[in-house]
Write a protein that binds this DNA or RNA. Sequence first.
DNA 1: GTCTGCCAG
Length: 663
Amino acid sequence: MMLNTSEPSPKRMKFSQNGDDHYAKIKEERFKLPIRPVKHKLIQEVQRHPTVIIIGETGSGKTTQIPQYLYEAGVHRNSIIAITQPRKVAAITVSQRVALEKRSDIGDLVGYCVRFDDSTTEKTKIKYMTDGMLLRESILDPLMKRYSIVILDEAHERTIQTDVLFGVVKSAQRQRQRNGMRPLKVIVMSATMDVDHFSQYFNKAPVLYLEGRQFPIRVMFSKEEQSDYLFSSLVTLFQIHREAPAQEDILIFLTGQEEIESAVKSIKDISSTLMGNVPNMIVCPLYAALPPQQQLKVFQKTPKGCRKVIVSTNVAETSVTISGVRFVIDSGKVKAKIYNSRGGLDLMKVVNLSQAQAQQRCGRAGREAPGSCYRLYTEQQYDTFKKTTVPEIQRCNLASVVLQLVAMGIHDVINFDFMDKPSPEAIHTAVEQLKLLGALENNDEAKLTPAGKNMAAFPLDPRLSKVVLAAKDFECLEEILTIVSLLSVDSILFTPQNKREHALAVREKFMSSEGDHITLLNIYKAYKGVQGNKAWCQENFINQRNMRTAIDVRRQLREICVKQSLPFNTCGLDTASVRKCLVSGFFMNSAELQREGEYISLSTRKPVTIHPSSALFHCKPSYVIYNELVQTSKCYMRDLCVVDAAWLYDSAPSYFKKKKPTG
DNA sequence: GTCTGCCAG
């Protein structure tokens, strides 16, 4: 195109050299982060002390900037800086951001490492990873030799993995010092809670406070106690809806999928009857099991003149951040798993939040502008809430944790340096279970057996690892890998409430009279038979996402089996071998049919019932094993498999000597 | 004849 120079010159066009503006902007953004003024102080503290605790609210920039500061200052001494995150998405997205800031490709200087996805190379010095990943690595290398700095981020979330890592990094640090090795710097980053607790545990480490970028939030308590939080949340929602300008979105915290779906329906019904000048309402449910496509709806920008209402479980507390939210309605409730180490049974219960959780929920209203939080409980009720959430490690089965610790060479698990110790009883139960599975020597030394060493290599519950190892003897590893993979992911069965009958009828063809495990195996075979066809999944109400995860897991397990030279046999249609394998890991979860037609658990002699969702619901086999007990209206066995009394006895003679099956 | 929150390896 020719420009006619006699014409008045057009508006000057601006050019910049390939991306300079972009990077200038990134640089400017980095400079404006609240953490920037304390950069030098921070580097100094880390150089002076083996451990530093950093307290900072969201938005301070600590997660992205601190590793870069330490790298630029050379504190890492040319070895790797690890930064752990409780969630995979966080590890991946943060590392991508930092790579961008460093003008480097992901996997060069900056990389991430999560299950099924490792972007790091020998060039990587800043490595974002899940806490679970670092924990698994430390089984092979308890001194964490490849790292000079370990940063444990989001420590306040107190995941099991972070809690175990606390002790592992402390021990690695001490041992490296004692052996005159290169020191291990530890940085613990947390939100504002439990500061003294953290500092005390980490040898009175210095604490650095960072300013965050949080807008003020008006917190309102209910004046009276509410008997029905569901109803109260609807009343509050429409109260706000009538008064607040459009585009100011509302986030409601409830407890579970079913509750949320029914609330969404009520809200839609009510809003369609509203008269007068109120904004249009867009109502979105949000929970982890929601198909990804529907989850995306939550992130779409609210159209002009509308208001988005998000009804969510606690996913929106930490895992998911939604822009546009100005109001939070907090039911004060959360669904939590409670584990009973005596009966070995799980139960899900709706319980009150901790104060820390309530604070976290409030914060979701002030990410971009001042906001409000409506609490559907009184201030007096709030005062009765626990200050902090009981750490997960005190609420679950510890068999896996104990096996990992022993595999790292920590034999005295009872005296392991936990920040908050699990009960001795819970540890004892785990040790006993591992002995029964043949993972630990049957004495007081807590020493791994050769089988135990192999079991620790699998990213599985020890009972499932045991099942995999047993497949060698019963020559059915292919089938077992399939079943174990399917058991270790979220359910591949997808049963929408309104099409429940239909879903069950369609899936009837996969049902096995030998139980749920064999049913799962049938489904997997059928899925493979149609090459993972999407339409087939829809027709048969199979959750394709979870099925794909199971296939990834299977591949990973297969690789570990190769390393252990396990033979890849198949048993064809002889499912007895498969069921015998299952018995070797789950014999302690067995039940016997009584004359009256009821079952009792052989470990506790307490009555148990077949869960209505099981393939065996209408059957009455004499002996079954089950994956888990769930206490609701009754004590239900879930995921059952038909077995012979003799198999039970053969798998653990000394165990059953006392509780000999009567049949 | 059920009622499962969330995350990780």
